[in-house]
Simulated assay, not measured.
Amino acid sequence: MSAKTADKVATAVIITFAGVIVLIMAGLLGFILFRGVGHISWDFLTSAPQTIKAGGGIGPQLFNSLFLLVLTMIITIPLGLGAGIYMSQYSKPGKVTNFIRLIVEVLSSFPSIVVGLFGLLVIVNIFGFGFSLFSGALALTVFNLPLMVRITEQAMASVPLAQKEASLALGLSKWKTIKSIMLPIALPIIITGTILSAGRVFGEAAALLFTAGMSSPRLDFGNWNPLSPTSPLNPFRPAETLAVHIWKINSEGLAPDAPEIAAGASAVLILTVLIFNLLARYIGRLMHKKFTATK
């Protein structure tokens, strides 16, 4: 076989594989959205679920998912930025640095059920936080932290070395160089990676079953006291997220219209993740244009 023929065959095979993957993903998304979009309404998005009659929605579960996302990113972003900057700018090559990178890679591949059991043993029981949003946020930090560290490290490493050396040559300290020169350049990549890692929070269920719990107290959305057990802003209350609700409604089947609720909730979950991914791309492009002066 000539080189030209081999190139055409390889190109056709690669295009075929890519097309199959696209068709599978499009079919999966289309099936979920087709089954669920018709059940989505304002009442469905804002009302509480019903267990003894048809109707109800996913309002508390959707709020819990968003609140859990905020709590998780409040913990993850500072830790991930600090560790990533240390790994890229302060750590010296050697066995210790390689060991830290190995630990980060191992954590990023941990099964979610293992993280959930770890959270149940350590966070819920030993530390005494109980089944709560805060326990779930700490467990999800175990998932997101390795990704944030790698993203920050790679973003800082992508800054041109000439700009760093020029800043140091002008007499700026290392921290000033990192803060004023390197971070603004690396910020578009960090923001994009942060939003993408945040999207993983919505789809996680196994770890939250053992940390955030499978039920929520009846929330009073007029009560904004974060210390009240019925306040939606209380981070130490049990909370059923949207992904956990989908699993629970399908496994228990107590509601008469459980299949419809599960289909609608699945569509909302898919749309939320899609919005996060599109938002990440859009913000990443805006930040890249701002800091690189490109059109």
Rank of each mutant, 00 (worst) to 15 (best):
L81P: 03
A26I: 12
I283Q: 09
G27P: 01
E260N: 04
F34M: 08
L33Q: 01
L227F: 10
A139E: 04
M73Q: 10
S228W: 04
F110A: 12
L33F: 05
M148W: 12
L209F: 15
A267P: 08
N64K: 11
T51P: 00
L161A: 12
S88E: 06
I15T: 07
G57E: 05
A54I: 00
S47K: 01
P259Q: 02
L271D: 03
R218M: 05
R285W: 11
P60W: 11
S2E: 08
S231D: 00
S47C: 02
F202E: 01
A54F: 00
N144E: 14
V104M: 03
L254K: 04
I190C: 02
A262T: 02
S251A: 15
Y90G: 01
F134L: 12
I189L: 13
L71D: 10
A265Y: 09
H39D: 04
T294I: 11
N277H: 12
R218H: 04
P235C: 12
G284N: 09
A83S: 15
L133Y: 06
Q154M: 05
A293R: 01
A139G: 05
L145P: 01
E252C: 03
L45F: 03
K95S: 14
I75Y: 10
I21G: 03
T292F: 15
K4F: 14
T97F: 11
N98H: 13
F276R: 07
L278E: 03
